[in-house]
Structure formats: C-alpha cells, structure tokens
C-alpha cells in the first residue's frame, strides 16, 4: 500500500506549519496528526512554538477547528496561531462581502433612533443629538453629526468617522470613546472633518484631507485614473 502523507510538518523561522491533506477523512487526519505530533514532540524544549495550520480545500466546522486546536495544544509547547483554509461557507462569504460594502442611507437619524450597518455607512442626512449611527467599518456623513457615531464596532481600530459638520456628542471607534469638548469650539472650523485613532491610541479629529495619507486603503477604486 502506497501510503500518502496526510500531515506534513515544516519548520519555519516563526515556528511550525502543518499542512493537512484535504482528501482523506477527518478521522484519519486526526489520528495521524496525533501520532506525528507525539513522535516529534520535543518535551525538553520549554520555548513556546507557534503553529500555523493549513487545511487546503477542506472545510472545517467551528467545532472541528476547536478539536484540532485542542489536540495540538495538548502537545505541551505548541500554540495554534491560526487555522487557514481555502474555503468559506456561503454565510462567511456573505458576511465578508457585507463587511466590505458601503451602504447608503438618506435619512435623518433622530433622537432615540439607532442606525446600524455591518460595513461602511454613507449617511445622506444628519444625526441629531440622541441619535446613534454604528458601522462595522467607516462612517461618512454628508450632513451634520450632532449625535453619537460608532465606527469599527467589531474592533476595527482603523475605522474612521467623517462628517460635513462635526459636532458630535460622542465619537467611538472600536472600543475608544471620546466626548465633545465642553467649551464651544469656534464655528466654521467644524466643517469637513474626520476622526481616527492616532498612534497614541487616542481619537483625533482633523481635516478630512489627512485621511488619504493615514488610511490609504480607504480607497476602493481599483486601477489607475
């Protein structure tokens, strides 16, 4: 019997990479993985080794991913850094697409109302005091922001908030919060501005034009002009 390798282990400068074959059964894969890891476990080393797992075209359910992680973790000094696969479920793919989409809404968000989108938000209208807009990504407001805006609410620290008139009661990006300054800023200065998390992990407000330097990835236009 020509026995094919289901698990190949490679050492890299960052740790180990495990390539898991995607044509054998999951059970066989588990068995071989367990066997190989036990064999090559160097228990005399006390340094933690990070492990990257590639599953090729095999789709692993969350439960299976957990099981493999657990199996690898049991080998003393191995830590799973991440599990990578070439395949996504439809749901995951749709979520990815959503997270990448700009949703435009023409509306005034009034006191007591909350507007929430998974990706970027383009609001054509105002956010009044007491109103809230939330986005998984960036928030662009073609109107006055007088209420609360929360960009990157799933943890994206690179998310930005921009508004034609920036007079928020509160700005939130990822888990950072800043509130409006108590003294009234001079009028006129509060036009076409953007808010982002700076190097010191603080929410900063600046001219809109700084964004193209700070967040070049914000452009979704592909190719040249």
């Amino acid at each position: 019997m020509n026995k094919k390798q289901n698990v190949t282990i490679k050492g890299t400068k960052d740790g180990l990479t495990l390539h898991l074959d995607d044509s054998c059964s999951y059970e066989d894969l588990k068995k071989e993985l367990n066997h190989k890891l036990t064999e090559s476990s160097r228990s005399n080393e006390d340094r933690l080794i990070s492990v990257l797992v590639h599953t090729g075209n095999r789709y692993l359910s969350k439960a299976q991913e957990e099981e493999l992680k657990e199996l690898i973790r049991q080998k003393k000094n191995l830590v799973v850094e991440s599990i990578r696969s070439n395949v996504l479920t439809k749901v995951e793919a749709e979520k990815l697409k959503q997270d990448d989409e700009i949703i435009s809404v023409a509306k005034i968000i009034r006191s007591g109302q909350v507007l929430e989108v998974p990706g970027d938000l383009l609001l054509i209208g105002d956010v009044n005091p007491g109103g809230t807009v939330k986005a998984g990504g960036n928030i662009f407001i073609l109107g006055a922001l007088k209420g609360i805006a929360h960009a990157g609410y799933n943890g994206d620290k690179n998310a930005v908030i921009s508004a034609s008139v920036m007079k928020p009661t509160q700005l939130r990006i990822s888990d950072s919060i800043t509130r409006a300054p108590d003294e009234n800023m001079e009028e006129g200065k509060r036009e076409m501005e953007c808010a982002y998390i700076d190097d010191e992990n603080q929410i900063t407000i600046d001219r809109l034009q700084v964004l193209m330097h700070l967040r070049p990835n914000i452009s979704k236009l592909q190719g040249g002009f």
Binding site: R110, N128, G131
Partner: peptide, 12 residues
Amino acid sequence: VRDADRIIGLLE
C-alpha cells in the same frame, strides 16, 4: 426641541 425630534422620528 430634543423631544420634538424624538416624536418626529416616531411619527415618521
């Protein structure tokens, strides 16, 4: 005005 805004939101 704040409460008016809230009511307008409900009326809409």
